[in-house]
C-alpha cells in the first residue's frame, strides 16, 4: 500500500514522533511504500539538528535521517511551521528538506492512506 504520513508533535514532549517512526519502519519492512513523511506543528522539531538529547536517550532526529538515507525516504518539514519555530536551512538535519504545505496535500492525494500522528 502507498502511504503518506503526517507527524504533528515534537520528538520530546509527545510520543507521536516515536510512534510515527516505528510505524514507517514497520511499513517499509513489510514492503509498503511511504511516499512522504510530512512534519507540521511542533513536528518540525524532528528536523532540528541542534537537538541534543542525553546520550542514553534515543535521538529521533538522527534516526529519521538514517532511515531517509537507507530507504530514500522523503522527509518534508513545513516551511511556515518551521520558520516560526526556528528551524531553517541553517539548522535543518540531514535527510530532511523544507517545503510548503502543498507537499502534504500532494502526499494525501497520491497515497492510498494518509496516516496522522498527534492528538
Amino acid at each position: 500500500m502507498k502511504l503518506g504520513v503526517l507527524v504533528n508533535e515534537g520528538p520530546f514532549t509527545h510520543q507521536a514522533s516515536d510512534s510515527a517512526y516505528h510505524f514507517v519502519k514497520a511499513a517499509l519492512d513489510k514492503g509498503h511504500e511511504v511516499s512522504r513523511v510530512f512534519f507540521y506543528y511542533d513536528g518540525v522539531n524532528n528536523g532540528n539538528k541542534l537537538s541534543a538529547p542525553q546520550s542514553d536517550d534515543r535521538n529521533l532526529v538522527k534516526l529519521w535521517g538514517k532511515m531517509a538515507e537507507e530507504h530514500d525516504l522523503d522527509l518534508v518539514v513545513c516551511v511556515a511551521a518551521a520558520l516560526r519555530r526556528g528551524v531553517s536551512d541553517e539548522n535543518l538535519a540531514p535527510g530532511f528538506r523544507i517545503s510548503g504545505l502543498g507537499q502534504l496535500i500532494e502526499a494525501a492525494m497520491e497515497s492510498e492512506r494518509l496516516v496522522v500522528f498527534g492528538d
Partner: peptide, 19 residues
C-alpha cells in the same frame, strides 16, 4: 494552543488544490 491557526492554514492550502 496553535492548533486552530495551523489547521486553518492547511484548510486554505487544500482549497487552493481544488480538493
Amino acid at each position: 494552543t496553535i492548533y486552530a491557526l495551523e489547521v486553518l492554514e492547511m484548510v486554505l492550502i487544500t482549497g487552493a488544490f481544488d480538493q
